[in-house]
Amino acid sequence: MYVTAHLVRSRSGDEGINGFLHHHGADFSWPPDAADLPDTAPGTIVLGRVDLPPGSNQVRAYLDVLAPDATPRAQIDQAMAAFARDLPERRNPTVFVLGTVTIRFGVERGLERIREPQLDMLAAVALALLDEEARREP
């Protein structure tokens, strides 16, 4: 599972948050280091939320959460909470690993002083996609 939310700015100056939820499938062998999965094997998109049509927008901040498809939601919440607590001690951008949950988070230089609210905002979108997926599942 790979859920991403990123704050984007279009060339005309509009801003929005795009989010996507991917599944990797039961046959996928989850690697010990999942930090590169968004670039190498992002999985199949199962849900999306698009404020601005993707393509050549400036990405101002991103949050990627990676975990095996069957990971309990509580485990993801626990990783997110631990990451949020650890964020002030971390550089920007950063990769955080707790168990099988990997989190990548970064903001562009102009947003570094407001990293925490940016994380809250992107986490809300990413976790909302997981909630929506849970509602859809029978």
Partner: peptide, 9 residues
């Protein structure tokens, strides 16, 4: 490594 800025979607 986490992706470094500048980034484009």
């Amino acid at each position: 490594r986490a992706p470094q800025f500048p980034l484009q979607d």
